[in-house]
Design a protein around this nucleic acid. Structure first.
Lengths: 151, 151
DNA sequence: CTGATACCATTCGCATACAAATGATTTCTG
DNA sequence: CAGAAATCATTTGTATGCGAATGGTATCAG
C-alpha cells in the first residue's frame, strides 16, 4: 500500500501509459469538490453551497430574475428554481413579479435573508480557508489562477 | 463587462476584502467540474462519469465488493448501489455472491463491459486532454499536483 | 460460547444537476 | 402590424450524492 504510485516511473518506451482513474482530472475534480462540500456542511449545516451561493450573489448584486441569477451562479434554470423554492420556503428570499416584463420573477433577499448572509460570510471565508489548508498561500493562489482558466 | 475584475486592486487598508463568490475555491471547483462533465457527455453520451469510473476501476483492479469499489472510486455506499444497478441493467457488470462472506456481493465486468471499457479508454484520454486544453502542459501538471494535495 | 461491535448491502428522504418539453410573453423581422 | 424567433419560468424524467436507519452477517472480547 504505497501512498502515491510510481510518480517517477517513466512511460514504457513506445507504449501508451496505462489509464489510471486517479490520474484523470475529472476524477480529481470530483474528489476535491466532495471534500469541499463536506467542509462546508461542517461549518454551515442548514444551508447547502448552492443555496449560499444564491444568497451571497443576491447580496452582492441585488434583485435579479431567476434566469439571470442562474447565469451569475452557473446554474441551470431548473436547478435555480429548486434552490429558490427552498430558500423561499424558509423566508430568506422573496419573489415579486417584474412590473414591465410579465415573464420575469424578481428574486430578492428578505431582511432575514440579508441578515443571514451577513452572519454567514465570515464562516464562508473560513470554509474557503480550510479547504485550501493543504496548500501554501502561494500554491493556493496558483490553484485559483489555473482553475479560473479551466472554468 | 470587464472579464476579470480588479485583480490588482489592493485590499483597502485595514478593511476585510469584499466577499466575492467568484473568488471562493468552492465556487470555482463547482464550475470546473460542471465544465468537465459537459465535455465528458459530448464524447461519451451513453455513460456518466461515475459509471465510467466504476467500469474503469473494475477493469484496473478486478472484481470487488460494492463497498470496496466505493472506497476506490470515492463513492458513498448508497451511491455505488445506484450506479451498479444501472450498469447491471445494461449488462456491463454482474453481481455474484461472495462464497465465504455472505454479506458481500462481488461486482465484476461482463465480457461486454470489459469490451466497452477498452473501447472507451481512448475517448476518456481525449476528455482529460480537452478538459485541460486551456492550460499548458506544465500548468496542467501543476494543477494535478495541487488538486491531489487538496483531494 | 455469547453478547457487543463492526461491516455489508439496502432503503428512504432530500438536494443538486441537466436535458427536453411546454406555455406565456416579449422582441425581432419582414 | 403579423408571424417568427427568442426569453422566462415551469414541469418531468434521469442520475448523482450523502445522511440516517435497517437487517443480515462476521468478528472480537470476555
Amino acid at each position: 500500500m504505497s501512498g502515491q504510485d510510481d510518480l517517477l516511473t517513466p512511460t514504457p518506451a513506445g507504449e501508451p501509459p496505462k489509464y489510471r482513474l486517479q490520474d484523470q482530472i475529472g476524477f480529481v475534480l470530483r474528489r476535491a469538490h466532495q471534500r469541499h462540500v463536506a467542509i462546508f456542511a461542517a461549518h454551515i449545516a442548514d444551508l447547502t453551497p448552492p443555496q449560499f451561493a444564491a444568497l451571497a450573489k443576491l447580496h452582492e448584486t441585488g434583485a435579479t430574475s431567476q434566469n439571470q441569477l442562474g447565469g451569475l451562479i452557473a446554474m441551470d434554470a431548473a436547478t435555480v428554481k429548486g434552490v429558490i423554492d427552498r430558500l423561499r420556503a424558509r423566508g430568506l428570499v422573496e419573489l415579486t413579479p417584474h412590473g414591465v416584463d410579465k415573464r420575469r420573477l424578481l428574486v430578492s433577499l428578505t431582511a432575514e435573508g440579508a441578515a443571514a448572509v451577513e452572519k454567514l460570510i465570515p464562516l464562508a471565508r473560513q470554509i474557503t480557508e480550510e479547504t485550501l489548508t493543504p496548500l501554501t498561500q502561494k500554491e493556493a493562489a496558483t490553484l485559483m489562477r489555473l482553475m479560473r482558466k479551466l472554468g
